[in-house]
Write a protein that binds this DNA or RNA. Sequence first.
DNA 1: ACGGACATGTAACACGTTACATGATTAA
DNA 2: TTAATCATGTAACGTGTTACATGTCCGT
Lengths: 179, 179
Amino acid sequence: KSLCLAILSMGDASGYEIKKFFEGPFSHVCEASYGSIYPSLQRLAGEGLVTCEAFSQEKRPDKKVYSLTQAGRAALLEDLSAIPGPDRVRSDFLITMIFAHLLPPSHVAGVIDGRIATYRALLDDLESGALKGPAGGDAGGIAFTRAYGVAMIKASLEFIEQNRHLVEGAALLRAPATE
Amino acid sequence: KSLCLAILSMGDASGYEIKKFFEGPFSHVCEASYGSIYPSLQRLAGEGLVTCEAFSQEKRPDKKVYSLTQAGRAALLEDLSAIPGPDRVRSDFLITMIFAHLLPPSHVAGVIDGRIATYRALLDDLESGALKGPAGGDAGGIAFTRAYGVAMIKASLEFIEQNRHLVEGAALLRAPATE
DNA sequence: ACGGACATGTAACACGTTACATGATTAA
DNA sequence: TTAATCATGTAACGTGTTACATGTCCGT
């Protein structure tokens, strides 16, 4: 909703391009699908916060390019001024880890290996600058957010590699001893 | 939904106690409110995955204690065996950071200070073992998850403190120079 | 006396995803 | 030819939150 406003503030864009942006440097922060973007854009247009200009293309559907209005800019500022609540996380991975003792050890190991692999891939994407925002350069906020993502993934990877034994072998190989 | 099953696997509990658990060591992983817990419990009971025993208390509403059935245990195993998808994160804080350049620097500083404060508080909670699960001791999975949370928060704190200049002063004090 | 913990539940609402529907162009 | 990219949108569905509704006991 208000995120579309925010993205538009970086330059005019179509719904398709906004979706692209959610796949780019934004991906750690929040996700969105067409089903939420297009209705939001329409609602914003109805409220006068964005304008829409349609470019008819010969053999494709019209490309509708949205631009922020003055009112939209004001609304964005207001939204952004709210103090942000805590991050909401839903980690099926950690849920699995909590109950790892109920699962076959080989499965747990597989899940962990998979997580490490996807995180490494993600890390490569982020570090090799797979940046596709409407505005090209790396502005302060984008740089910060990207680097934040990199830092979190690295920390996560490191932690998992150093502590996987807690969920992998522990219950099976050791009796609850002094330590 | 299936999370309630999982929690019940650690011991019988009432809806109220389950809610408690979501506020304890689980809080980083997923949240839940009464509005989702009670209906889930009823549905699970309807499907025969849990049983419910009501203890009438003199001056309070009946305390309904739910227990996992054999079928429930099987269903839980199946749910847990699915390979977990990527973590879903929604961070209003990072969104604010991305667009920090649109906001007054003092506000940005305030938001960052606030985030640091809440993270430090959270860290204290986690490290001082504010553990309230139905099962007392620190099983492998719980220990792993708790330590994971601690590691992530520490990494986050460290990153924010070392990189806040990227969103705070940068655009205002420095021209885009070589580095 | 007041607020918080104990204790359960419902109804309305908001949000977002998934899948569907359509259709051209281009690179493998 | 087959898949991916470009391009927009709708409808159904599920899930989860918020607020409401109720009532006691205990500590300050």
